[in-house]
């Protein structure tokens, strides 16, 4: 059986406090179980409590996929207890540094470095292997397969598709719909428009066999007006994507940092009113609840 739960649902920055208790204040982290095998998506602050839970049943063996290396997707990693304990086997997959194409391990070196953190990467005691991802790569995990798709974000961000016993799960990481950077009439507009169409179709095709889609939905339509190009999607854009790709179940996550539980409840009501009956089962991500895939 394949199932998953969120340990972090928040975008950009942890937002603890009374107003975010129900949907959660930790930044991105998902636990996916393929029967007893463990896959983790992203190392936001939610990976810290997940690590504490895993610490009860060490040694552990797991695969961690880092969608991209913005802080909110990695800043929990140095507090993931299993990394520090000998006997654990952990494989970390992530994008290279797009500037110098250094591997994912070098990206973590910058985080685990004096004077910002007292422990260096070399000192982590678990058996850790690093693998730097490429676009359209298919990785055989032994028990499942993971395939990558380059998404649209101001960092190299890979969406990851997991297949296990006939079930298919996809997590976008951070993503904004592909858009034309030129204005109509500009030189280059049409050429770029072809690329945009090609990549959008590529994503729709990639999602064709997906049962469960977990998607960055940081903004409302209104917020998006002033945040185009920031690398995040709206609730509406994800619903349109799910419908076009024929995905039946959609989990909306990466909640805007300042979004309160009450505001999310209102968004939920709005989504039900507007999209109820569209054929896509809609969920707002919340920490701690198991969902079957």
């Amino acid at each position: 059986m394949m199932r998953f739960r969120f340990w972090g649902t928040r975008g950009s920055m942890p937002a603890p406090g009374p107003e975010t208790l129900r949907y959660g204040g930790n930044t991105t982290c998902l636990e996916v179980r393929c029967d007893d095998r463990l896959i983790i998506h992203d190392g936001g602050s939610g990976i810290r409590p997940l690590g504490l839970e895993l610490a009860r049943s060490m040694p552990i063996d797991c695969d961690i996929f880092i969608s991209h290396t913005h802080w909110d997707h990695i800043h929990g990693l140095p507090f993931f207890v299993p990394l520090f304990v000998p006997g654990n086997s952990i494989r970390i997959y992530g994008p290279p540094n797009p500037v110098d194409l250094a591997g994912v391990e070098e990206v973590l070196d910058k985080q685990l470095a004096y004077p910002h953190f007292p422990v260096r990467r070399d000192e982590l005691a678990a058996n850790i292997e690093y693998a730097t991802l490429k676009d359209h790569q298919v990785i055989d995990l032994g028990f499942a397969t993971a395939s990558t798709l380059l998404m649209n974000h101001p960092a190299m961000n890979f969406g990851i598709k997991l297949k296990y016993k006939g079930k298919v799960f996809f997590f976008t990481g951070d993503h904004e719909p592909f858009g034309n950077i030129y204005e109509p009439g500009d030189a280059g507009y049409e050429e770029y428009d072809n690329i945009v169409c090609e990549r959008r179709q590529g994503l729709v095709d990639f999602l064709a066999d997906v049962d469960v889609l977990v998607a960055d939905s940081q903004y409302t339509d209104q917020e998006y007006e002033t945040k185009k190009g920031w690398g995040h999607s709206t609730f509406r854009q994800n619903l349109e994507l799910a419908m076009e790709a024929g995905v039946k179940r959609l989990y909306l996550t990466h909640h805007e940092t300042t979004r309160t539980d009450v505001e999310l409840d209102a968004i939920w009501d709005g989504l039900q009113a507007e999209w109820g009956g569209c054929g896509v089962e809609i969920h707002l991500a919340r920490e701690g609840v198991w969902f079957d895939i």
Partner: peptide, 13 residues
């Protein structure tokens, strides 16, 4: 200089 590390690619846009 140290604060600029919190705002550097590929960790912050």
């Amino acid at each position: 200089k140290l604060l600029s590390h919190t705002m550097s690619a590929p960790h912050f846009p």
